[in-house]
Amino acid sequence: MKGYILKRLLSLIPVLLVVAVVVFLLMHITPGDPAAVILGPEASPAEVAELREELGLNKPPIEQFVSWFGNVLQGDFGTSIFMKQPVSQAFFEHLGPTLSLAIMAQVLAIVVAIPLGVLAAKFRGSILDQTFMGISLLGISVPSFLLGLFLILLVGVELKWLPVAGYKSIDAGLLNHIKYLILPAIALGSMQAALIARMTRSSMLDVLNANYIKTARSKGVKETIIVIKHTLRNAFIPILTIIGQTFGTLVAGAAVVETVFNIPGIGQLIINSVERRDFAVIQGSVLLIAVSYVLINLVIDLLYGVIDPRVRLGRK
């Protein structure tokens, strides 16, 4: 098990390298001289040239890349020229809100979607099933920013039940923290919920047809126990996969929702940094996001083993 985790962590390095190359290239292809942007339109060419020198922008790109990536491997992601602080510090400061939002959206999606998917499968073909699946189709097709704007207008502005926008850290009290996150989490998690509900339904339908379900029925097991004990646990394996695969999309989608709800998360950090041509922050953040993807997937893979004994023992 330890060996397995170590192997997975080592596999991070090539992933990092590829992501680093791509981000680096993108930065250098996009027009706009960072030095000029930082200094503003009034700066003289001499000042710009001086800053370019200071930032190392005059060196050949290969050299720039090697020195940057070398530092990254040692845990140094560079310093933001604009914010005057280390990139990793800026990143982790903005990570809190994003993580809170993503986790809340994910939890909300799971808590709503799995029971709905289970019921839809159990009562396949009924009005209930058709209604749930209709709603889930809507959930997949409505973009999160649109849903977010709609929620702001309806719940925030019209009904005044919840704050319109903004963010309160957990230090301001858990309830307060959650109150600000509910609407953005719904906007962000609805597509996730729709996907999970559909996967739950189809996976449950598969398992309900399995021979061991017939065996359980032939023993006299009650139908609710059949669904919860015998079916759901088996059906959970593909559900977990889809949760894992889409958690990445969720984090990416968070950037959009953060903008709509004015939440100071990673999304905002990156968008602001792009506007300011703050190369170090963009490159560092994207890399750190890639690392978190790999780590999340590792956790999901380890969870398979908890649910399915075949995976557990196969890895010994």
């Binding site: 399995a210 021979n211 061991y212 023993k219 015998h230």
Partner: peptide, 15 residues
């Protein structure tokens, strides 16, 4: 009344 099925490989719950 009890029943035994044809395919023992798939008749027991794997988890």
């Amino acid at each position: 009344i009890s029943m035994i099925f044809q395919d023992p490989m798939s008749s027991l719950n794997p988890v």
